[in-house]
Design a protein around this nucleic acid. Sequence first.
DNA 1: CGTTATCTTGACGTACATCAAATGTCGTGG
DNA 2: CCACGACATTTGATGTACGTCAAGATAACG
Lengths: 244, 244
Amino acid sequence: MVARPLSFVIEPHRVLDPCAHCDVRSVSVCSAIDDRDLNRLAEMAEVVNVESGRTFIDEGEKADAFFNITAGTARLYKLLPDGRRQITGFAGVGHFLGLAVSATYAFSAEAVDAVRVCRFSRPRLRRLLEDFPAMEQRLLDVAANELVAAQEQMLLLGRKTARERLASFLVARSAGSTPCGPNQARLHLPMGRGDIADYLGLTIETVSRTLTRLKSEKLIEIPTTTDIVIRDRDGLEALAGGLN
Amino acid sequence: MVARPLSFVIEPHRVLDPCAHCDVRSVSVCSAIDDRDLNRLAEMAEVVNVESGRTFIDEGEKADAFFNITAGTARLYKLLPDGRRQITGFAGVGHFLGLAVSATYAFSAEAVDAVRVCRFSRPRLRRLLEDFPAMEQRLLDVAANELVAAQEQMLLLGRKTARERLASFLVARSAGSTPCGPNQARLHLPMGRGDIADYLGLTIETVSRTLTRLKSEKLIEIPTTTDIVIRDRDGLEALAGGLN
DNA sequence: CGTTATCTTGACGTACATCAAATGTCGTGG
DNA sequence: CCACGACATTTGATGTACGTCAAGATAACG
């Protein structure tokens, strides 16, 4: 596979008023725009498909666009010169990316699986925001929520044990997943162990060992590497919160 | 020292139009409000003095106010039930606090030294924001900047060594401090070793040891425990960035 | 100028990292 | 369908950076 300058496929709009038919709008910042103004949003949006593993935001590059994820999951990360990586978050459907004041991106983003994004040019979105304060307010809410999540993650990275980190990760992921029985849930992990490790500030080996330990303690089951069943949600939550 | 329900002193405004004479306005979000509208801001602001060590925001409590720091430094932190503490940031003059969507505060805030804050009731500030989109935009910028800082801190907590953490901390603190010679700077640390430890995800002992090591390596000097001189800013920055 | 909190230094322990190998998973082609 | 190779995950043996426990040394304070 050869790296090419333009590494993703751009799909020109084929339908009229694509935003009106967007099934992701309800969970994204776009819901702040009224139905009758959707065409203004649509004409500046560009649908981009990013295949698994491809980078679509590069830390340090000129930040000329915002992104809204409409399918798949992306990992957001920062690197140290020697290759150490910290994943700062996983961005799923409805997630808004690129909220930077600076002229360059502060992080990189890569597709974990097949990702589709709506791409907005920065200056055009800026202008849109001036006309639609509701959208700006919505963005402020999003940013405030991310800030809260970031603080929670700092607590995890700075003060929790490996076991507590994994428990926290699974509990957080289980929010909005299919509950299968009382005190239980089944969840799918699109990212590999390496991603989980770099998200939790651990190594692959420690993640693996800790998961098998949680399994032996009957807190979880691991039917496949990418699917995990929470057997004892309360126990896991207690662990995540620092008890035990 | 007995804890009392109302643990800080409220100073009623004595001057007319206090915001107009506020020497902190230029570095705070309040600068987004036009001179002629300042009275609207002033009538909802309340100056509060918080003495050293006092808590003025309690994680989990009802979030009924925003704060703007006008003097001193506060530590923002989260606790685990067994007492483990992670300081998520130090808030200095001009810093805006309380940007939470949720009904309760996501963190606690304590005065490191003597702190003075402007306190705004939440509903009233919300109404003000509706009338002044410039203020809202300013808040969005603030939030975006904090998000960038939070991601940087996640990289620090998840992937940097103790030596790199201290170097990063000192370099970050030296931004905007008095430069005393080329490649040098003098900086004051209002917080103790325990605060630094809880901010960097380390223990007091490791912070102390690492500082003395940086001193022995001629990267810094430690004239007093609360004042540090950076002798080799480039070396410290390289270390902070993960080189060496 | 004692008293107490904070900081530093030392000796030792441990949770997690590192290194290494075995096992499992999945796509590809015979 | 099965054999093969590439890669991800698990498991094991060992190392180490940082934590813990315990004194001293400084600094802060009445």
